[in-house]
């Protein structure tokens, strides 16, 4: 699973989870972006096509975006992306958007753990028996 984390809030929150020694499953690979608004929907689709079971996007709380309004763009994009994922059979439950600020280490660990739990219960992603990028 890939997690796009915004530098100022979600990534810092994830760091705090580490400092607090909170444990969560190792299935997630973090990618640091400066703002959740940097996350192009294409990245999400690419991740699924390369074998990701889920994609997590962590951004600042609405109103608190370090770059004023990037997270609002993310929010809108995710709404549309979820509709698209449903239509192509991947399912919106495999994409999660969470607002996590720099003090919410616990929330980060819990969200990731919960997401992985839910992903484990879903059937594996296959398209006609092959992988999605074939």
């Amino acid at each position: 699973m890939i997690a796009f984390l915004c530098n100022w809030c979600a990534y810092a929150g994830a760091d705090l989870a580490g400092v607090s020694r909170l444990q969560y499953p190792p299935n997630v690979i973090p990618i640091r972006v400066m703002c959740s608004g940097r996350v192009d929907p294409q990245f999400v689709l690419l991740a699924f096509s390369k074998g990701a079971d889920g994609v997590f996007i962590g951004g600042c709380h609405p109103g608190d975006c370090h770059y004023v309004a990037g997270n609002y763009k993310t929010f809108k994009r995710v709404i549309l992306l979820k509709k698209l994922l449903n239509q192509i059979g991947i399912g919106e439950e495999r994409l999660r958007l969470e607002w996590i600020n720099a003090t919410e280490g616990k929330k980060f660990a819990e969200s990731i753990s919960d997401f992985i739990e839910k992903l484990k219960r879903l059937p594996p992603l296959r398209y006609n028996g092959g992988r999605l990028d074939e």
Partner: peptide, 13 residues
Amino acid sequence: NIREQCSWVHEHD
């Protein structure tokens, strides 16, 4: 980052 987001959070595995 292989500490805050790796070694420190996956100590059991």
